[in-house]
Design a protein around this nucleic acid. Structure first.
Lengths: 145, 145
DNA sequence: TTGGCTAACTTAGAATGTTAAGTTAGTGGC
DNA sequence: GCCACTAACTTAACATTCTAAGTTAGCCAA
């Protein structure tokens, strides 16, 4: 029996995440998880904790704790949403914006270098990954969560 | 700014892992992590803890704890390796073999169904993922690690 | 207005991962 | 023989995520 897709995806992602985490901690003193959260808020429009959880693929309690820590660190601004409900309105502080801008592009470039080295066509692989994610999201929504 | 490959891989894998974990806990009372470990030992020839850690993409302490638990649960047999060193020789118990055989194929079939639904060519995507994993492993080995 | 419903968020506790540091067992130069 | 080195594993402390259960805030029907 050979390896299979679910296992390879699991292991590939685990290794990429670990490498990313080491680099970011060493060079910018922040974990990869927190960096991803800041990225979502700053560049992909996640403006509530619920939206951030969906965007990151994690649950609400994870986001709840992370936003507390990021706010305490002065990277994220968390305010009650004047628009109603029990929502929080999330936005980056100036320091948060600076950090994301510094790291973001440099970081994706490193992954692109690995992909180039492997001979896998980047654009196609990225497109397929995005499509799988969309499909999986849709199926989960249809299944009623 | 749009989403990017590293984020999409991270989120896709997080969701697949969580879905897998829920299914396995509900239907077979075992976590996805433990199932993957048993699969590696039973079908991919991981016969020491070091080999298992490499195959799973995790560190030795994680495997150390997991093998203790799996052994206590009667799914895994852990013996000092007569062949020397400080190695442990890992093998599945009959119950472990039964569990892996029961779950394995059913499980990959579900992922294949999602991939089919998405229109992404399964074989190609799996091949690319495997190649990225190999390349990343090689680069990390070369970097000294 | 009040009682039930739903959504967003928080808290608590378990599982699993990490790094750092220590233990155990062979290997090899002297 | 002995000391240094390396590899495999364990232990300890901490980070992050999950599920389950509770809280808070609007909405809506009677």
């Amino acid at each position: 029996m050979e390896r299979n897709l679910s296992l390879d995806l699991h292991v590939l992602t685990a290794r990429l995440d670990r490498a990313a985490d080491r680099i970011l901690r060493a060079e910018h003193d922040i974990s990869y998880s927190r960096f991803l959260a800041l990225t979502l808020v700053g560049e992909l429009g996640a403006s509530t904790q619920r939206a951030l959880a969906d965007g990151l693929g994690v649950t609400e309690p994870s986001v709840s704790r992370m936003t507390s820590v990021l706010a305490a660190d002065g990277l994220l601004d968390v305010q009650p949403d004047p628009g109603g409900g029990n929502r929080r309105r999330l936005s980056l502080t100036d320091e948060g914006k600076r950090l994301v801008a510094t790291i973001r592009r440099e970081f994706e470039d490193r992954l692109a270098a690995v992909v180039a080295e492997s001979g896998v066509p980047y654009a196609e692989y990225a497109k397929h990954t995005a499509r799988l994610l969309e499909t999986f999201d849709r199926l989960e929504r249809e299944a009623g969560k």
